[in-house]
Structure formats: structure tokens, C-alpha cells
Design a protein around this nucleic acid. Structure first.
Length: 407
RNA sequence: GGACGGGUGGCCGAGCGGUCAAAGGCAACAGACUGUAAAUCUGUCGGGCUACGCCCUACGAAGGUUCGAAUCCUUCCCCGUCCA
């Protein structure tokens, strides 16, 4: 590939590259010296469950790997070792070495669904940050100013609104910048919300006499609600480890608008191809639902292969569109304390089956006429089991459970 | 160290002695509608109890005043602003 083609390839799906000119000359330089670029991205050790939001970044890293460069997957374990107090409502207990390594293993398993293991270096920032010591830490702090840190938008905002900012949050960009120095990163990738931290890395590298890393930001992926960023705690995520049926269904739940966003950030289709699809949906020549099926199939294929995609698609058509009973659902036996009675308390059973978080909730749902038993809506909390029935198939909203009755 | 303001349900935010399981909004869940969605409309939204009623736990924490406290008092913890 020519340098121009490489640039083109790397640019797709990036929000911003600082700067393209530097990236070009760095690519040229590396081609000359036959040295791969070191492309860094940092991850939090406390949340080892990756979702599609993370994969936007990972896909970009993969693109660098495709061109022969090295991905440096940095696990920010120092925060984990301290017991990060951010969030404030609950102080998280410090994680042990073992837990962190365990999380790292989980990461690997998930990350290598996208990244090429042979071109990936996994590192922990405790390697160098713990060695800094107090003097090193103070020295680190002397490299920037409060005014500069306050330039970061979320800090400014919080400061203006009188919301607390703990000191360690100020330290975080510093350590991240120091990571770039320690790793001699050529490129650092991050979400657009990371821009400030990434840029600080450039400055720190410069004061250490290193060439400044190129910063590439990727857009933050919106979650299934279409507005907030995808995150596990908001519940609007699609996890990379989720079973194909679930993944497929979740993609189908995205709004039409969001669908094109996902096309852009989660598939390898070119912008031109995506524009064509959009046009098709607008003029009616393409049904949006078909496009969404196609998207779901593409995404599921990335993580579960073609087989997973067709499995997910079949399940979706059967269960959601045709309202059939899914062929797999959580199963359980009738709880011991409920056996022997001729009448079953549905509210208690729904809770036991995990379809409702409490008896009160189950009861509400019953009254809302949201519960069906063996295909028929039922709104009374007591249920008389008909003759010859050996199992109860419960449905509450999208969720199902099968309860085997003692014979 | 001092002065002042504040801590309410997942979040925001009213309430400032009873009628408060706590207005309103957001989020969430469910139902209708649909293309699966989105939008819209409707219902629900602490927990327990065979229950349209009773009980328990909740308004930073612990005590107290009162027939009665999210609301008043005391102490403590936490956050913010300003002054040192």
C-alpha cells in the first residue's frame, strides 16, 4: 500500500488525528527504517467486560496491525491497586495482583477476537508508575499546571458547577501521559473524551526528548438508547461475550438512525457504501428492517462467525417476529417449598425464576397483564395447574423461563 | 482555623412538624401501536404479606424533643463557596 492508501485506511472511523502530517512522516520514517509503530491504548483493569463501544477503538488498533504495526494494550492497573475512589459513593477495595491478572486474562480472551495476538504487547502501568516514588510523583506534577488541567472541559464544567474534583483525578492525566513516555508510544488511540489526556502525553514526551506521539481519537459509540454513550452501567450495551441470539436481538433493537452509526463504526463498509444504504432506506428501495438484519448479521459474525449470525437471525425471526417460544431459555425445577400444592403462587415463582426482582414487582407485572403462562396471559397471582401439564413456560416481557413440575 | 450554603429514591430535584413510600422530570420496566425499533399513548416504578388493606425499612450517621420528624435540637461524617 502506498502511504496515501495507508493514511486513508487509518483515517476511516477516526474522529480526529493530530496530526495527519505527523502521522504521514512517521509512517514514512518507519517504512524506511523497517520499524513498526507502537500504537498504544489504555484500558481500565476494573471492568474486564468489553462491549461494542470498546471495539470501535480496538478495530482501529487492528487497522494499524493490518499495516504491520504493534498494538500496545496497556492495562492501567495502578488505579486498581490503589482502590480507585472515583465515583465516591462506594470506595472500591484495592484489587489484588491476582485479580488484576485474572482480569487481564479476561481481557485477552475478548480482545483477541479483534486484535492479532502476534502483534500485540500487553503491559501494565504498575511496571513503571510504582517505581516513581514520592519524589518521582512530585517531579511528574511539576510538569504541568493547574490552569492547564482545568482547561479540560469536564473539569472546567464541574468546577464551575461547584461539583467536587478530587486531586487524584488531576493526577490521572499525568500518569497516562507518563505511560506514553515509558512506552515510547508513536501513536495513542482513545475516545474523543480522552483528547486532553492524549495531548498531555505529547507534551510529556517532548520534555523527555522523545518525538511526540500522534494522537488519534475515535468517536464515542452511542448505546442502544441512541443518546448516551454505550456503557455497562447504563445497561445500553452489547457485550462482546454475549451469546449470538442476544447480540443479534440487541442490534435489532437499535433505532434506524443509530443503525447507520453502527454501520459506520462497527463494520468495515466504506463511507460511500453506507451512504448508498442510507439513500436506499430513504427512497424506499431498501427496507430499513432488512438493513438492520444485515447489520446484525455482520456484527454477530465478527464475534461468533457465520454460524452464530444465522443462529441469531433465526432465533430473532422466530421469537420476536413470529412470537414463537424460543428453543432455549433458563430452566429450573419448581422450588421445593411450592411443591405439593394444587395452586401455584405465580408472584413467588416469577421471582424465583429471576423474571422479577421482587415479589412486589412480580405482582405488579401480573396486574399489568404482562405475564403469560404456557402461552396464555394470566393476571391472577394464583395459578391452578391444569391436568397433565408437566412444565410451565413463563414469559414476562422479553424474558422467558421454563419451570419443570414434579411428576 | 473562621463565615456561609448543602447532603432526599438509579439520577436530577421539590418538600421544611402530621394528609410523605415522599411532587415533578429523566432513566427503567411492562402494555397498546409497529417493521424489531423509533415516535406516540397508557400503566408501573422500596420490600414483605393469598393483599386495592396491613406491616416493615427508607430522606448522610447516631442520639434527642414531640402523641407524631425527611422536616425541630445535639454531636459526628461528607461536599461546595468565600476568608485565612
Amino acid at each position: 500500500m502506498t502511504i496515501d492508501e495507508q493514511l486513508e485506511y487509518l483515517r476511516k472511523g477516526c474522529a480526529e488525528i493530530i496530526s495527519e502530517k505527523e502521522l504521514r512522516s512517521r509512517l514514512e520514517e518507519c517504512a524506511r527504517k523497517r520499524r513498526p509503530l507502537r500504537v498504544k491504548a489504555g484500558f481500565d483493569p476494573t471492568a474486564p467486560d468489553l462491549h461494542l463501544g470498546h471495539t470501535v477503538l480496538l478495530r482501529k488498533m487492528k487497522h494499524f496491525q493490518d499495516l504491520g504495526h504493534t498494538a500496545v494494550f496497556l492495562i492501567g492497573d495502578v488505579t486498581g491497586l490503589i482502590g480507585d475512589p472515583s465515583g465516591r459513593n462506594t470506595t472500591r477495595p484495592p484489587m489484588t495482583r491476582e485479580q488484576i491478572l485474572e482480569n487481564a486474562e479476561t481481557y485477552k480472551k475478548q480482545v483477541f477476537k479483534i486484535l492479532d495476538p502476534d502483534r500485540t504487547e500487553i503491559r501494565f502501568n504498575s511496571e513503571w508508575l510504582l517505581e516513581l516514588g514520592t519524589l518521582g510523583m512530585i517531579e511528574l506534577c511539576s510538569q504541568t499546571t493547574i490552569a492547564q488541567l482545568l482547561e479540560r472541559e469536564d473539569f472546567t464544567q464541574r468546577y464551575r458547577q461547584g461539583k467536587p474534583i478530587s486531586l487524584h483525578e488531576f493526577l490521572y492525566p499525568l500518569t497516562q501521559a507518563q505511560d506514553s513516555v515509558a512506552l515510547k508510544a508513536d501513536v495513542e488511540l482513545g475516545g474523543t473524551d480522552q483528547k486532553f489526556n492524549l495531548l498531555l502525553g505529547r507534551e510529556f514526551q517532548a520534555t523527555h526528548g522523545q518525538p511526540r506521539q500522534i494522537v488519534a481519537t475515535v468517536p464515542i459509540l452511542e448505546g442502544l438508547d441512541g443518546t448516551q454513550k454505550m456503557s455497562k452501567s447504563l445497561g445500553n450495551y452489547i457485550g462482546v461475550d454475549e451469546p449470538p441470539e442476544v447480540m443479534y436481538r440487541k442490534v435489532m433493537q437499535a433505532s434506524d438512525e443509530l443503525m447507520f452509526r453502527y454501520y459506520e463504526l462497527l463494520t468495515d463498509l466504506s463511507l460511500r457504501e453506507i451512504a448508498k444504504l442510507k439513500q436506499g432506506a430513504a427512497d424506499g428501495s431498501q427496507h430499513p428492517m432488512d438493513l438492520k438484519h444485515d447489520l446484525a448479521a455482520r456484527i454477530v459474525t465478527d464475534f461468533h462467525g457465520r454460524e452464530g449470525a444465522s443462529k441469531g437471525g433465526d432465533a430473532f425471526r422466530r421469537v420476536v417476529q413470529d412470537k414463537q417460544v424460543p428453543d432455549s431459555m433458563p430452566e429450573m425445577s419448581l422450588p421445593v417449598e411450592m411443591r405439593g400444592a394444587s395452586v401455584i403462587r405465580l408472584d413467588k415463582l416469577l421471582r424465583a425464576a429471576g423474571l422479577a426482582s421482587s415479589g412486589a414487582e412480580a405482582n405488579r407485572k401480573l396486574r399489568e397483564n404482562s405475564v403469560s403462562v404456557n402461552g396464555a396471559k394470566h393476571r391472577d397471582m394464583s395459578y391452578e395447574v391444569p391436568e397433565g401439564v408437566s412444565e410451565l413456560v413463563l414469559k414476562l416481557g422479553k424474558r422467558w423461563a421454563r419451570v419443570r413440575l414434579p411428576s
